[in-house]
């Protein structure tokens, strides 16, 4: 079986989208697929060390998930890296605009990268955007 590469672009900072992106990343990674995640725009601040994992909810589903024992998106992204073949890249443009340093981000993230490298990596994979 040929496992295609899954490339996930996360730009939204809302709980529903972060959660869905994390679910796709973690399940794909533990199913033997190569996963590349690119974090940019409003998604990136949720990966600053020590920041509250709480995210704005878009609707009722977000409120419900927050009130139930749904695995956190941060936990799922970390498991994608630790249990599977996933790499999660912070966007270097968002890092610059937000004034973030690599050491201030969660340790399971890879080194910040730019679009040129991401596009090159994504060339032979499926691209999912959240």
């Amino acid at each position: 079986m040929t496992n295609s590469k899954i490339c996930i672009v996360v730009v939204s900072g809302t709980l529903e989208r972060l959660q869905m992106a994390a679910m796709v990343a973690s399940v794909a990674a533990v199913s033997g697929q190569e996963v590349i995640v690119f974090l940019s725009m409003n998604a990136l601040p949720h990966f600053v060390k020590g920041n509250s994992p709480e995210a704005q909810k878009e609707g009722d589903m977000g409120e419900l998930m927050a009130s139930k024992n749904v695995p956190g998106f941060n936990t799922l992204f970390e498991q994608a890296v630790e249990l599977g073949d996933a790499r999660i890249y912070p966007c270097s443009m968002a890092m610059d605009v937000l004034g973030f340093e690599q050491h201030g981000l969660e340790a399971y993230l890879s080194e910040a990268t730019g679009l040129t490298k991401f596009l090159d990596d994504a060339r032979d994979g499926q691209v999912w955007t959240f």
């Binding site: 533990v30 139930k68 695995p71 799922l76 498991q79 249990l83």
Partner: peptide, 17 residues
């Protein structure tokens, strides 16, 4: 019990390791 997808799968994978 009490967790939601994909929590039980992830717990299984941790145990498998």
């Amino acid at each position: 019990c009490g967790s939601f997808c994909p929590g039980p799968l992830m717990e299984l994978i941790v145990a498998l390791k």
